[in-house]
Write a protein that binds this DNA or RNA. Sequence first.
DNA 1: AGCACGCCGACT
DNA 2: GTCGGCGTGCTC
Length: 808
Amino acid sequence: MSKIRYADIAFPTAVRRLFTYETGDSTIRPGMRVWVPLRSEFAIGMVVQVHDRKPEFETRPVERILDEEPVMDHTMLQLTEWIHRFYYCSWGEAVQAALPVGLNFASEKRLQVRKGFKGGISEEERELLDEIAESHLTLKEAEKRWREGKGKAFLKKALKQEWVTVWEQPKQKVDYKKVKHWQLAESVNPDKALAGLEEKERDNKWVQAFEKLTGMNLPLPHRHLLEDKLFTTYTLNRIEKEGWIESVDLPVESEPVHNGIHRPDEIKILSDQQQEAFEKIRESLDSHAFKSYLLFGVTGSGKTEVYIHALKHALEQGRGGLVLVPEIALTPQTVQRFYHIFGDQIAVLHSRLSDRERFEAWQSLKSGEKRIAIGPRSAVFAPVRDVGLIVVDEEHDTSYKQYDPAPRYHARDVAVMRAHMENAVAVLGSATPGMVSVQAVKEEKHELLHLPLRPTGTMPEVQILNMLEYKSAMRGPLTVELYNEVEKALKRKEQVILLYNRRGFASFMQCEDCGHVPQSPESSTSLTYHKKKNILLDHYSGYSRRADTRCEMCGSANLKTKGSGTQQVEEEVEKLFPQARLLRMDRDSTSGKRGHQTIYEQFLSGQADILIGTQIVAKGLDFPNVTVVGVLNADTELAFPSFRAGERMFQLLSQVAGRAGRAEKPGVVYVQTWKPDHPAIQCAKTHDFKAFARHELANREMLHYPPYSRMVVFQFKCPSWSKVQVVADKFCDAMRTVTGDEPVMGPSPSVIEWMSGQHQWEANIKLSRNFNGHAIEKLLNDIFKKYDSIKPKGSGAVRINVDVDAVE
DNA sequence: AGCACGCCGACT
DNA sequence: GTCGGCGTGCTC
Ligand SMILES: [Zn+2]
């Protein structure tokens, strides 16, 4: 045994601390997983540091090192450490998010009857003990098997008396895929074996099968052999029974995934503007230094071609690539566009992969076999070797933010940090960039690459329909104008998309005469309506007032509360156009992405005339035959109780506009709204993102919202209503003591006040944008320390979640 | 986060 | 007397 060294280990629990163990095994290195004793059990942990500093406390030894080679390299450890500080989670939680579930170990506890145990026990107990010895159960299975009565009592007694002991073993969830193969038994001489048969046996099918096997290049997979009629499960087993062949489980290459055509020669020639953007990226790649770009270009401006050329260049440099795409956009079509050029160098990290498939994709990237990873949020951790380029497409998409479980990271920001750590180039692409990225360009953190619309492209016309004017001219949820346009389009055999906003999980009030939604005087966001207490509430600041009886805008008494319940929009539309073929799509009704995909395909192939659904229809494909797009109630987005409501609305309308028609068949987007003058609507009409950004940024700056601050949201959860409230109050006291009164808002009940048996409150704090990982960690440590010193009795039951850079 | 340890009410 | 409820504190 060599010299004792110390390993700092991160566990996948919420404890934001490392634990130090000792080991004499000199093969231990950071990035390896270990099996160590923790309390009275064993646990899996990740070695993050190996050193010689003997701690003051007693250390326990590492039981087992689970890897021969580190599964995380230095950068990945560094990246997860940054997440640990910045998003205030444990290092182990960040590690867990970065590894495929297949690499998680679970402890498996099996029961063993102590050897040579005779004991003075009753007949009945003896029987039970024999059963335990034979059944080879896990502890969990045994506890389930003997759930009650005598059995339960005996199991407990047997464990206590140590008649039965528990063996704890690490068990990896997924291993390399192994498949049953057949090979000749070592000891067998085929000729002799056959010669030893009786005459009448020679005609048997299994004998013929064996004869054939001897002439084959074994071992061969069972499945493969079955293709020959001579080989069946029976004949093979029969030969095995003679002891002439034996089965072995051998690892196999996973079957290649079919992603369509691979024609690298068909890479598209870039337009001048695309070429210009690409040249910039190429220069940065050549310099081998960190650089980040915001690639701003509307739908159809050809961002993907720029990504593809840049990826190609990275590969030519011998470096790898990483492409992040929002979950919803990760369709076969998207994959095909990359596969077309890069073929099997691509690994797709789909969220629908099985644990094993994910593990194999991960492995193929780590080994360097695959050079490009494409995937949603979690793919930011894909172990691409020597990453040169990281693309984040649709960088504004909120699905890049993880909420539960921790770490609550933003994949776009992690991507930029990873690029920074690996001296790579980050390219964030969007037609409607988030304000955070726009501001980063202004501050020269990102460089802007602008792709104007191609000369062949057109932006569809956007018509605004003022609901005030159509108040008495409605056909169900459609204004007469939109109704007529739909009719006309149907007559022309063209297609229609109708989009209605999903009502959020929050209720709100709206004036029936002017469409106004009551706003908070404190945070300038929409107030939510709470039926029980009949109040309007601002969940940022905690401001509340008795529900309005008159519209604060026009004075009308005609205020209506809009719940979060289901809407009948689809049924009403169906009645309006009984002769039309209707296709529905929303997040709930269609199960999973497959469902969406089939709906898109049906609509594209003309199997329906009208596609109606929630926001999700805006994220689909291009439909060249669609000439009318109707947004039925655009304002619902503005009622969303968030300072980002305007941004979301603009993004939605822009996205919709990007779907309507093509050059040959120009489409018109009709937006029904009570607020025709709202900047988000006006700018969407003129397709003027820059004007919208100017307006929105001015607003944000005035109210000190991101990107002019960094918001940290704290959520308090507990089954007891009174406890949550007390803890939230005390926590805010602690915050105000540490930071002063000014940046703290709240506490207040969450927008979702009650969820799965828990009451939820929240509070938030606006920090300077300059707070980096260390500063955030220090401040939050101070706040929690202060809180610990003043927290009331019984507060342990309240869970406190920290969400740095929360999105909603 | 789990999970053991410990301190008080309802049962054989 | 003890079984078990949850509140508290610790894990190298
Ligand atoms: Zn009004």
